[in-house]
């Protein structure tokens, strides 16, 4: 595919789906600033890339780029930042003030990123398990197994939340 055509496709696709990509990125980094950075990086990577060969594949192609950009970001951040407990607590209360989706954030935080990916892509972005597996480079059975484990982890997590909230 020639470059102008690819650029045109990316532009159209990104404009239509930018909210999805933002939320997907946010589900990994849980910070608006970082999520915006990831969206920006992912767009740059997509434009630079030579790998989109088939227009019909743009959806999974771009999702894949966003997921990988987010995972790269998390890996880098793990290397540089060591946050103190106090700082984490402080950040936590900050979120509580600004966002209402606290138990979503807690739940996502409880999940290792491998499991987070399958839950977010499968349930929140409504992709098929086959698509999710393909995007994450897994075979379908591995993706399913991760999904089961993730649901198990989530359920435990959610029960705890409910116990805490009970009067």
């Amino acid at each position: 595919m020639n470059k102008p055509r690819q650029y045109e496709l990316i532009t159209e696709f990104v404009m239509h789906n930018k909210d999805n990509f933002y939320r997907l990125a946010y589900s990994y980094v849980l910070s608006p600033e970082d999520a915006l950075d990831i969206v920006q990086d992912a767009i740059h990577k997509a434009i630079k890339s030579d790998t989109l060969k088939d227009e019909t594949a743009i959806k999974s192609w771009f999702y894949k780029i966003v997921v990988h950009t987010a995972l790269d970001f998390l890996r880098r951040r793990k290397r540089v930042t060591v946050a103190s407990d106090a700082e984490l607590e402080f950040r936590d209360t900050g979120h509580e003030d600004h966002y209402r989706n606290l138990d979503l954030e807690k739940a996502l935080n409880e999940l290792p990123t491998d499991y987070r990916s399958v839950v977010v892509l499968r349930y929140f972005e409504d992709l098929k398990i086959e698509e999710v597996a393909e995007m994450l480079g897994l075979n379908v059975n591995t993706a399913k197994t991760r999904l089961y484990k993730a649901l198990k982890l989530l359920r435990v997590e959610m029960e705890e939340v409910q116990i805490e909230e009970a009067p």
Partner: peptide, 29 residues
């Protein structure tokens, strides 16, 4: 959880960030 996910607030800057990323990406490329 899904409802919360879909109600993750979209920052006002997103449009701007996307637009400029598309522009700068093309120039760089």
């Amino acid at each position: 959880l899904k409802r919360e996910y879909t109600s993750i607030p979209i920052p006002a800057e997103l449009d701007q960030v996307v637009q400029s990323a598309l522009e700068s990406g093309r120039q760089a490329d």
